[in-house]
């Protein structure tokens, strides 16, 4: 073949390939628009796959790192009932992390690589877990507000276009409703207690209120992934829409048990049928995302140590499995 013909053939092939891909993309978007779920072996654009791997692994990391602030209080829970409940909640979070890591694996991601990305700081997790849990009331605030915000984020994800993620979210949401209730119950109990207990509850709300609102991510004007994610129906609501919902749901819950939302600008807006709220300190948010929150280093160190110190267990289990296999063959 002369070189000119060869170039022609190569060009033709690449044109055909482009046409094929745009046709595949058209079929893909048509399915999304008709709310037909995408399943692991279906064709999907590379960026859809990458976006999902990023989002689902971040979500998984948040569940796993999220065990740490609460794990901190298991041995110091005020009574056996609270201790059993907290243990069950932390156990659920481990489970949720595992559902989500398997969902990333259906997209071709390697589980251990994903986890190593968390440990190297390459992958992010929800910034809220970089705040310390200083008192028992923080277990109330975390359950009520942090799980409350997580549920608000996750309920629309049950209808996400990627099948395995949506199915994992259905299970997670079912399990998480007790998490929020138990947190609110802790706050309610403290608010019917002594002056010190009431102050403790109010202090926990003061510290967790703003970081909880930040959980929905940057304002819509600065959110670089929102538009594409909504077109792909990975996301169903914008960050600001969800944040508004969170404020509107939570304010009456706080008032009902005598807590005050730490926002002097908070005011009911009759016209929009929702609350106006004060400005969020986005510098604080970005600072924590970048790794400078009060507990970032501690959280990652703890996770890394857990993996390193558990290496011999994983190796021993492998050796045991090999030995049993050999015995079976023999």
């Amino acid at each position: 073949m002369s070189s000119r013909i060869r170039i022609f053939v190569v060009e033709l092939l690449s044109q055909m390939k482009e046409q094929d891909i745009s046709e595949l993309e058209r079929i893909f978007q048509e399915k999304i628009d008709q709310d037909i779920k995408i399943e692991p072996k279906d064709w999907m654009p590379d960026n859809y796959r990458k976006t999902l791997i990023r989002q689902i692994s971040q979500h998984a990391h948040s569940e796993i790192v999220g065990m740490l602030p609460e794990g901190n209080w298991i041995t110091r829970a005020p009574n056996l009932r609270r201790k059993a409940v907290l243990l069950a909640k932390v156990q659920d979070e481990a489970g949720h992390g595992l559902y989500l890591y398997s969902a990333t694996e259906t997209l071709g991601a390697d589980r251990e690589d994903t986890i190593d990305d968390l440990h190297s700081g390459k992958a992010k997790y929800s910034s809220i877990f970089n705040y310390p849990t200083l008192t028992w009331a923080d277990m109330g605030a975390v359950g009520w507000l942090v799980d409350g915000a997580a549920i608000m984020n996750q309920v629309p994800l049950c209808r996400c276009s990627y099948g395995p993620y949506a199915r994992a979210m259905v299970r997670v949401c079912k399990e998480e409703s007790f998490h929020q209730r138990q947190g609110y119950e802790i706050m309610m109990t403290l608010m019917s207690g002594t002056i010190e207990q009431k102050e403790m509850a109010q202090d926990a709300l003061n510290r967790f209120w703003w970081p909880s609102l930040m959980m929905f991510g940057p304002p819509d004007t600065d959110s670089k992934h929102t538009k594409q994610s909504m077109e792909w129906r990975i996301k169903r609501h914008t960050n600001d829409e969800l944040r508004q919902m969170m404020v509107d749901f939570t304010v009456p819950q706080a008032e009902a048990i005598g807590l005050t939302i730490p926002d002097p600008d908070l005011k009911w807006n009759e016209e929009k049928g929702g609350y106006d709220y004060g400005e969020i300190d986005w510098d604080e948010f970005w600072n924590v995302v970048k790794g400078n929150g009060p507990c970032n280093k501690d959280r990652i160190d703890t996770r890394r140590k857990a993996k390193e110190n558990g290496a011999w267990v994983r190796e021993a289990a492998n050796a045991h499995a090999e030995k049993r296999k050999d015995r079976k063959i023999a």
Partner: peptide, 11 residues
């Protein structure tokens, strides 16, 4: 229901 990692069938 989903998937998981384990070293052998018992685990």
């Amino acid at each position: 229901f989903g998937s998981l990692r384990a070293s052998d069938e018992k685990m």
